[in-house]
């Protein structure tokens, strides 16, 4: 199914009628593979389509004061550039981290589906609400949390989002991020990101080998992060 992981996550959280499921299944999707750091959309682009992530990892960012500020991460089943549906010109860039696969859906097809089903319109509105609740947590990460709880919060959040699409196995998941990416997402210096990861390892809360992160003590990590997963609006919490 072209939008399978998205449908699965939404189905688990709020349910989908057979008609809505059919409408999603019938969407015309063009497959595209993105290489590491290849853009899905660039700031200033006028997009005519949205992508849904099939596999891999995506980030959105803006350049401010010569620095790349990562604004969001997207995992399989997410629509990273959904907001371009209403943006004549994109105000930010979206890029693949590591190799990823996305399905592209034209804006006009998506708008037709949303017009055909008020329930699906609600579901996509809900999707942008989740993106907004995540952004609120990230503002707290950047401005209020200390480095240890900020990095812990980011890792807990990604783990929960992976869990919702069955990509969390024994508290382990694939994470192609570099320490520079974590620095760009958290506003913390790369040196301090490195020290913070060392501290999390030393406390036996995480293991990070190559691209596999294991949350060795998820409960303690959640406590340090003060992580309350309700804002992700998933049922798997």
């Amino acid at each position: 199914m072209p939008v399978g992981l998205f449908s699965k996550r939404v189905q688990d959280a709020v349910g989908l009628s057979p008609t809505d499921l059919e409408l999603l299944k019938a969407l015309r999707v063009t497959e595209r593979t993105l290489d590491n750091r290849e853009p899905l959309c660039r700031q200033g682009d006028a997009s005519t389509q949205c992508g849904v992530v099939h596999a891999g990892f995506i980030a959105s960012y803006k350049i401010a004061n010569d620095r790349e500020q990562i604004l969001a991460f997207y995992v399989p089943g997410d629509f990273p550039d959904l907001q371009t549906l209403f943006l004549p010109v994109s105000d930010h860039s979206v890029v693949s981290i590591g190799r990823s696969r996305v399905g592209l859906i034209s804006h006009s097809d998506l708008k037709n589906v949303l017009a055909a089903s008020p329930n699906l319109a609600n579901i996509f509105w809900r999707e942008t609400t989740i993106q907004a609740t995540i952004l609120r947590e990230w503002i707290c990460n950047v401005a209020a949390r200390d480095a240890l709880s900020c990095i812990a919060h980011l890792l807990c959040e990604i783990a929960f989002r992976m869990k919702a699409v069955d990509l969390l196995t024994d508290d382990s998941f694939q994470l192609p991020l570099t320490q520079q990416d974590l620095a760009n997402a958290s506003g913390i210096s790369i040196v301090h990101v490195n020290r913070t990861l060392q501290e999390l390892r030393k406390r036996r809360l995480i293991r990070w080998v190559n691209r596999t992160v294991t949350l060795s003590n998820f409960e303690e990590l959640k406590r340090i992060a003060q992580f309350e997963p309700d804002y992700l609006l998933a049922n798997s919490a």
Partner: peptide
């Protein structure tokens, strides 16, 4: 630039 940012990070403690 990285040094200033790092100084800000450790200033918290």
């Amino acid at each position: 630039a990285e040094a200033k940012r790092f100084a800000r990070d450790i200033e918290g403690s």
